[in-house]
Design a protein around this nucleic acid. Sequence first.
DNA 1: CCAGATTTGTTGCAGTTCCCAACAAATATC
DNA 2: GATATTTGTTGGGAACTGCAACAAATCTGG
Lengths: 404, 404
Amino acid sequence: MAPMELSAPPRSPRTGARASEVRRHNLSALLGCVHLDGSASRSQLGAATGLNRSTVADLIHELAGRGLVVEDGMSSTSGRGRPSPIVHVRASGAVALAVELGVESVAAATIGLGGQVLQQRVELPIVKPSPRETARLVAELAALLGLAPADRGVVGVGVAVPGLTRRADGFVHLAPNLGWKNVDLGRLLAEALGMPAERVHVGNEADLGALGEHRRGAGRGCENLVFVSGEVGIGAGLIIGGRPMLGAAGYAGEAGHMLVNPDGRRCTCGASGCWETEAGEAALLRAAGVRGMRGVTAVNAVVDRVAAGDASAVAAVAEIGHWLGMGVGNLINLLNPEVVVLGGIFQPLFPFLRDPMLRAVRARSLDEVSDLVTVVPSALGTSAQLHGAAEMALAVLLADPSLR
Amino acid sequence: MAPMELSAPPRSPRTGARASEVRRHNLSALLGCVHLDGSASRSQLGAATGLNRSTVADLIHELAGRGLVVEDGMSSTSGRGRPSPIVHVRASGAVALAVELGVESVAAATIGLGGQVLQQRVELPIVKPSPRETARLVAELAALLGLAPADRGVVGVGVAVPGLTRRADGFVHLAPNLGWKNVDLGRLLAEALGMPAERVHVGNEADLGALGEHRRGAGRGCENLVFVSGEVGIGAGLIIGGRPMLGAAGYAGEAGHMLVNPDGRRCTCGASGCWETEAGEAALLRAAGVRGMRGVTAVNAVVDRVAAGDASAVAAVAEIGHWLGMGVGNLINLLNPEVVVLGGIFQPLFPFLRDPMLRAVRARSLDEVSDLVTVVPSALGTSAQLHGAAEMALAVLLADPSLR
DNA sequence: CCAGATTTGTTGCAGTTCCCAACAAATATC
DNA sequence: GATATTTGTTGGGAACTGCAACAAATCTGG
């Protein structure tokens, strides 16, 4: 059996483990399997975890008893031998309210175990809401989705915020595009939803995009990925060794102000030639000659023009692709990921910016490193952050299924 | 008791754990405590791990029986109550041969548990040795240090290489400054030393510098650190969440070709204004007007001039500091570390480049992030890589003390 | 259509590990 | 010097997993 990862490098809070932790771990491993892969036969689960048949049976019984999985009578007809019952996640066994705070709207959906969307995305348009308004809106969305926060089965809320957030307590240090500074969003949401604070999880939008794509999208099964979130600004979300890399305070991935263009424009941060100044939404609209429009509608207008073959739009997108690739190349050199996922505005533009982007990547990164990486568009599109937010909220249960 | 870290996010090889893994983990946790902190009373160990007194006693007995720790009769005279015997690491219980391949020399030392240097660093000067010569030299150094590779107590060899290395088998993909390409260094060393290949560990010089500073130097007790290695080129070593971040193939941290200077010089990589072109050794010597010299002696000459107040040298170092800071600022934005450790040529120059470097850092990184980080010079100097190499070689034993 | 091979679920028992409680030992305090 | 406090030690108990034997269900081959 493979050794437990636990002690490989001694960690700072070097904790001992009691025997009962083993069971928690094994429950978690099994639930994780079906959560990520949907369903598997009991014998497959045994093979995947290295656990004994009798142990798997016992653990699955416990998960079933807690309503987290269901055993199907259907047999897996693979080869001879006694058929193995198939274990499915029970999506409604654990449900998260996934919320995305955008610049133009607040969106939400309810997502259950296995990443199953139980209630489709609902979006309320609003421009720069105050923190308090936002909390009220989220509660409204929860009601719209028919979610009762006190329900058994509802594990918590996950919120994606375009700004610097502290995971521990949901404090938003800075969210320029919302006009927020030092907002205790976690507490506000807990109050508005009537939910204990420890069930409210707040994360950075790019970090959660990365998590979403890692678990449910273009980065499935890959241990090291970079998600590039192209919204108003540019942010990066990092998955390293299969787990989110948040940095000391949770502020990792602030890549928007990386220098990419020697002759670039002045940025709001004071420097020049920053990544988001050269490859962000504003740069795209400027290059494409769009005036007086912003946001999704403006970007969509450019996408339509490019798709129709409008030469000036094609050139604009190629330029954006070039500067995007410069930044992506930097990240590849530094982090050596297996996959780079391009989200936000870059996803619909991907086919059109692919070639100049890849040329820039190869120019800026070592061949030995860039040969090993693939750059792909987001598979989840605008849902990446919602899926990531749900995964964040479900993580507590996945780590310890005996909590419920 | 704190939960085991293990299952927090479901990992790809989702492994189960048998009961006996718990013991391996706890042995590892205890040995890790004394390995990192030198020594501790038994009761302190119990408090640190959360393990029961009787369990700690049992585990310590096992570690002592394996010759990895020694219990002192001396009591800890802190407060009243029965004194607790102090547990010390037994450095000679597990010894690693630590090797650093430099451009001008090969250095080695023997380092035992607890990071204790058993045989001081020995250095053999040599310019661009072939892989085969290198392996022979390492065996020679081992003999010089009186190390018998077959000895019980010798756990393995750790080698720091200035190039792209693959941890798994010690394959060196590319080491420009040695003139190497696709060298199976792990196998060569194993043969030259008469040691099984699985005891030979090869790592990137910057990655191991980071590990050394994390465990023994300026980054002790910090979970997220960036080590900037200023040798001929510039490389970064990353410790994330208390563990080395190596990337998908082990090539993470190739930061030398990050763009920092819009108007910079042409780099060998084809681009312009790369970090190492602007802040590396060559840039320093050029700025200081040094000609016809390279390497340690040349850098030392500049250090001496700066220390003596030579105005042109001071200006040169300030310029280097500025470009260094631009790169450090980028890394801080991206990784949000607690500490940035400057090694190699930047360590002796630190007092002189500190201020321009910090100004550039603040200009390039978000205040919210840079306020939380401290930039310090290497505490281990030229020994950082050796300590890191030893830690790498000792890691196997630390993860499973019952192996010996 | 049936016997054998194969695979898997089930059950009872054994092994390992840790925790707990009681007791003994050693020190500081009053 | 008595008491409180802290820690080492010992034996018993609880939790969990693995193993082996048996039963069940399917496929294969004649």
